[in-house]
Structures are given as structure tokens and as C-alpha cells.
């Protein structure tokens, strides 16, 4: 018995040229790599303790100077312990912390072994200056112009935050949230001065 079978005519497969296919796959791969890197960075937002802190320059507010200069860069502070305090005028807990920060600065300033830098994160200049005046802050302070300094330390920053670097510019201490007292600030700085 002859069996009927359906034999469709051979269809010539016509697709995009090989180079287009390769280009598309390469594009998709590149996109995945970019997304992956973005996710990786989002999961690791904070600079690790022990990391060398990349250099940055802080332009100071009018009326503030450091060694007769209107800006200060981290690399120029080698040999000193550097305390970088992130704050903002709209941050309530920054106001709680401000008097202790200024008192600690007054304690360390005469020796010149410790430098405090105040970095004003996303603020209105007039409000920031009002804040500094209210708490009589005297250590060098400036706005984080273009939000370039903050992401070096923490991409998801929560005000206030303080980072303390040793004499070699290596991150040794971090304080997420406000310091509660001068004693607490000193307990973070003093070990670095004694070389412990």
C-alpha cells in the first residue's frame, strides 16, 4: 500500500547576514555587561575600610580658607589625619552633630595633625552658610559641586556621614549617622594619631 506523505518544498532559509547577527549579539552582550557593572556598583556603594581614597578637591565656601587657599585637595593633606564630614542644612541630625564636630576641631586644630573638612551635600548655598553661621563652624567647609565627592565614599549616602583617613590617605574609620559626642569623635581619631 502506497503511503501518502506530505513533502513540503524545501524552503531556503533567509536571515540577516552573519555580520549583522554578530553585531546584534555583541551589542546585547555589551548592554548586559554595562547593566551588570551598574548592579555590581549598586550592591557595593561604600568605600571599604583600608582602601586608598581617590583624590578630590573641595572648593570652599566664601569666608572659608585652608592655608590661605580657597580650595583644598585631599592629596595636599598627606601626613595628616583627615576627617571628612558630610552634612546638609536640611538634615536634622547634622544639626545635632555640628556642635560636637566644631568642638573636636577646636581640640585638634592647635597641633595641626588633624584636618577637618566639611562637605555640604546637595544644598542651597544661602541655607548652608546660615547653618555654618548658626553653629559657628570654623573648619574648612565647601559644597560638593556636581556631587562628585560624595560618590567616592558612598553612592547611597545618608546624612550625616563621617570618614576618617590616616596620614597615608587610607580610609580607617567610617561613621554612618551622627557622632553623639566629642568623646566619640576623639575615640575614632586618637588611635590614628598614636599609630595604633
Amino acid at each position: 500500500m502506497e503511503q501518502n506523505t506530505i513533502n513540503p518544498p524545501a524552503i531556503k532559509r533567509r536571515g540577516a547576514p552573519l555580520w549583522i547577527q554578530l553585531l546584534v549579539w555583541a551589542g546585547l552582550l555589551a548592554l548586559l555587561v554595562i547593566l551588570g557593572l551598574g548592579l555590581f556598583r549598586a550592591q557595593h556603594p561604600i568605600l571599604k575600610i583600608g582602601s586608598k581614597v581617590p583624590d578630590f578637591t573641595l572648593k570652599l565656601f566664601d569666608g572659608y580658607q585652608y592655608q590661605q587657599a580657597s580650595q583644598v585637595s585631599l592629596s595636599s593633606l598627606r601626613g595628616k589625619v583627615v576627617v571628612v564630614n558630610f552634612w546638609a542644612s536640611w538634615c536634622v541630625t547634622c544639626a545635632d552633630e555640628a556642635p560636637a564636630m566644631e568642638a573636636a576641631w577646636q581640640y585638634y586644630q592647635p597641633d595641626g595633625k588633624v584636618v577637618f573638612l566639611g562637605v555640604d551635600y546637595t544644598d542651597v548655598d544661602s541655607k548652608a552658610l546660615e547653618f555654618l553661621s548658626r553653629f559657628s563652624i570654623t573648619y574648612p567647609n565647601g559644597p560638593d559641586l556636581g556631587t562628585r565627592i560624595t560618590p567616592i565614599f558612598n553612592k547611597n549616602i545618608a546624612m550625616p556621614e563621617t570618614y576618617i583617613m590616616d596620614q597615608e590617605g587610607v580610609l580607617r574609620q567610617e561613621q554612618i549617622g551622627p557622632f553623639q559626642s566629642v568623646a566619640e569623635i576623639r575615640s575614632a581619631i586618637d588611635p590614628l594619631l598614636s599609630g595604633k
Binding site: 502506497e2 501518502n4 506530505i6 513533502n7 513540503p8 518544498p9 524552503i11
Partner: peptide
């Protein structure tokens, strides 16, 4: 193509 093959099948 399938339709043409089926329609033209003499069986």
C-alpha cells in the same frame, strides 16, 4: 509552500 505542495499532490 505547504499549501501548494498539498494542493498539487496527485494522491
Amino acid at each position: 509552500g505547504s499549501a501548494a505542495a498539498l494542493v498539487s499532490d496527485p494522491s
